[in-house]
Simulated scan of single mutants.
Amino acid sequence: MKPENYFTQAKQVLGLPGSTPLQSAYQFGAEADALAALVLAGKKTATASARDLYGVDEPLPQAGAYDVILNASNEPVCVTHTDAVEVQSFLAVSADHAFREGEGDRSLAYWRQVHEAFFEAEYAEAGKQFDPATARIVLESFHVVYPV
């Protein structure tokens, strides 16, 4: 099922107005299936992306918006509602945020190790250099609203 159709189905079940927009449909990269499972289990309620890699015409995520989480086959898994969005430096990301990302042992040390490697690769792909001291990170908090 296409993400748009899945979201239309979710809006009907949730009683949302038909005009409610879908912010995006995305997967969590190479770990798409495992991380989508953490979202469904309620263990992953946050994510992070590199502010510096958003395009000029690519808007930042917005609190109050809805997203469709996809598995590795780009099939819809669930709909989330974005509770909060903030931009912080990589080194200012909190232990609480790392815990809510739900990965590994959920520690800040684990989060930094995994995300530093992830962001280094992402920046390199964009022809940029990742610097933990200056990188700005978009932190999103969310919860699953469909399936309920």
Rank of each mutant, 00 (worst) to 15 (best):
E4D: 13
Y6E: 06
F7K: 07
A10Y: 03
A10P: 07
K11F: 04
Q12I: 08
G15R: 10
G15K: 11
G18L: 12
T20R: 06
T20K: 06
P21I: 02
L22W: 08
Q23M: 12
A25N: 06
A25V: 02
F28N: 01
G29H: 12
A32L: 05
D33G: 04
A34K: 12
L35H: 04
L40M: 15
G42R: 09
G42T: 10
T45P: 02
A46L: 08
A50I: 04
L53F: 09
G55S: 05
V56L: 13
P59L: 01
P59M: 02
P59N: 05
Q62L: 15
V68C: 05
L70T: 11
L70R: 07
A72D: 13
S73Y: 03
S73T: 02
S73F: 04
E75Y: 01
P76R: 10
C78V: 08
T80N: 09
T82W: 02
D83A: 15
A84M: 01
V87C: 12
V87S: 06
S89N: 14
F90W: 08
V93T: 13
D96H: 13
D96V: 14
H97M: 08
A98F: 14
R100G: 00
E101R: 09
E101A: 12
A109M: 03
Y110L: 00
Y110H: 14
Q113L: 10
H115A: 07
A117C: 00
F119G: 05
E120D: 13
Y123Q: 08
A124R: 14
A124E: 14
A126H: 15
F130H: 10
P132N: 07
T134V: 11
I137S: 03
L139F: 03
L139W: 09
E140R: 07
F142L: 05
